[in-house]
Design a binder for these strands. Structure first.
Lengths: 151, 151
DNA sequence: CAAAATTACCCACTTTTACCCACTATTAAC
DNA sequence: GTTAATAGTGGGTAAAAGTGGGTAATTTTG
């Protein structure tokens, strides 16, 4: 279970150093094999341990090919999903097409989100986070599942 | 399980170099024997390992011959299906009629889609992808299978 | 059957990537 | 506070992959 915000620098080659505290867990869980894809709702990337992603892709692959919405999701998610291997220094190379999508340059944020990470450009993350905080005040409608949630 | 975006150049002879990371899997799975056909809903091609295609063609052949829609799909898909062999350098020659259908010139994109690849002209893929990203927000009707999907 | 076009196979060049090493900064220990 | 160890960062290099083209064999066409 991943959690926490981690400000990181991408190096000149587009490599992302996974913070050391996650590495053991990642090596145990998937031998350093990860899968990155795009988030379709925000300009950020999703980074899964490969076994976690394989479950999702199996579900996506099973969707009906002649349904337009299904096809669209398959093309976006599976189409952008790329295998990444951690190197000996605990780094993964983020492919150029994905970097472009999420507007990643030097300063990025790695966000632990349970079974996956999200990768944001630092600038975009800060803006998004601030918007979220404002929205909370406005008291936007919460789905039923959340009405009973106690923190 | 294929996945990922791969920008590739078709060479002057219409050959497509399969990215190295897929080659071992393709050789294991079908000894380099692939089948390409058209996608009937988008101007792109579908590229299957031969055993995967054989399953699909068997289903198509079993459709009722007197149903007009079935007949049409059979003619389009089976009619355009062409055997392709990977050469020693991991390349397949994309036949001219298929290249024309999908408007393939030099810059193309090979899109992993589970049991198959899609082959797009780079320009058309970028346009299509951008449209899809806009549509996601509009929340077009999703099939039931997708309502429960959690990423 | 001959000529032309196409295709398969091979080789050469260029670009990219994986792997390794070195340096710096930060944390932890004494 | 000083030292040691670990983590973060950057870059060089050898190997692999991508790319392009020549030539010979095969197929197609007139």
């Amino acid at each position: 279970m991943f959690r926490g915000v981690n400000p990181i620098n991408l190096d000149g080659k587009g490599r992302l150093a996974i913070p050391a505290r996650y590495r053991e867990s990642i090596n145990d869980h998937c031998d350093g094999k990860m899968v990155a894809t795009i988030d379709t709702e925000s300009k950020c990337l999703l980074l899964y341990p490969q076994p976690e992603w394989d479950v999702i892709q199996a579900k996506l692959d099973a969707l009906p090919s002649f349904n337009k919405a299904a096809r669209r999701i398959q093309r976006l998610l599976v189409g952008h999903a790329t295998d990444l291997d951690m190197d000996a220094a605990g780094r993964v190379l983020v492919p150029a097409p994905l970097r472009e999508y999420a507007l990643l340059e030097k300063r990025i944020v790695l966000l632990g989100q349970g079974n996956k990470f999200e990768i944001w450009s630092e600038e975009l993350w800060n803006e998004t986070r601030d918007e979220y905080l404002l929205d909370v005040d406005s008291g936007a409608a919460l789905p039923d599942e959340m009405q009973t949630l106690s923190l």
